[in-house]
């Protein structure tokens, strides 16, 4: 039984009189502890998939089961609890609270979590122990993204979702971030879903889901993921 299973998921947005089918019957599965990568061009529906998976949006048709539970049937309240306890989210633009220090940003998450990790330990893990009392504006992009990852990890989620985590970063920093994610996944056994439009990255995933026009165009299981260091793009 797969840990995460999307089955014929549809999502439509109504813009006035126009209806846009963002997802048009998406189905795939990811096992526990997998490093899954969702790739595809802009507008393929990657982010929509991630939003649905993260409980930030509701779907119109189909089902999404996470750890045996169908979150498609969740109401708003249940979704909030789901986000609170099971999901860690990393955004392209970090979305740190500017008015909080790195440490406090992490605490913002651990505060509401039932089983959080030690904040300082997590910050050490992402290599920011020395800078944890800095405000986001005092940190570089990569560092900010590390804080965002630490914030997601500290909640000790079942599922870590990353939406273009390297999109706003330069090559080297991006690589470092990806390495951090891959290492974390390997060491903690956390299930990780990363969205990227960069096809070069697909090699590092164990599950590769290629999307196009709101559908899964290719689903690939990669038995031998390549370490990030060896990937060039």
């Amino acid at each position: 039984m797969e840990y995460i299973k999307l089955d014929n998921v549809h999502k439509r947005y109504k813009m006035g009189e126009v209806t846009i089918n963002a997802l048009n019957g998406v189905s795939f599965g990811i096992d526990k502890g997998d490093f899954a990568i969702v790739v595809g061009p802009s507008g393929a529906g990657k982010t929509t998939v991630l939003n649905l998976l993260g409980g930030m949006d509701s779907l119109d048709e189909g089902s999404i089961s996470v750890d045996g539970k169908n979150i498609a049937e969740y109401n708003q309240k249940m979704l909030t609890e789901y986000r609170r306890n099971d999901i860690g989210f990393v955004f392209q633009f970090y979305n740190l609270v500017q008015n909080l220090t790195a440490k406090e940003n992490v605490e913002l998450a651990t505060q509401i979590s039932t089983n959080p990790l030690d904040v300082e330990h997590v910050l050490e893990m992402v290599g920011l122990k020395d800078r944890m009392n800095n405000f986001p504006s005092q940190l570089s992009g990569g560092e900010q993204q590390r804080v965002a990852i630490a914030r997601a990890l500290a909640k000790n989620p079942k599922l870590l979702l990353c939406d273009e985590p390297t999109g706003a970063l330069d090559y080297m920093t991006g690589k470092a971030i990806l390495k951090l994610l891959q290492d974390t996944c390997n060491s903690t056994g956390m299930t990780l879903v990363v969205i990227t439009h960069n096809g070069a990255l697909t090699g590092m995933g164990e599950k590769i889901i290629k999307m196009k026009n709101g559908r899964v165009s290719e689903y690939k299981i990669n038995k031998n993921p390549i370490p990030v260091e060896r990937i060039e793009w």
Partner: peptide
């Protein structure tokens, strides 16, 4: 709004 959305994503309940 972004800040609010962020904490919502983090799983803050409405009341929180």
């Amino acid at each position: 709004i972004r800040e609010i959305a962020t904490i919502k994503v983090l799983g803050f309940r409405d009341k929180e």
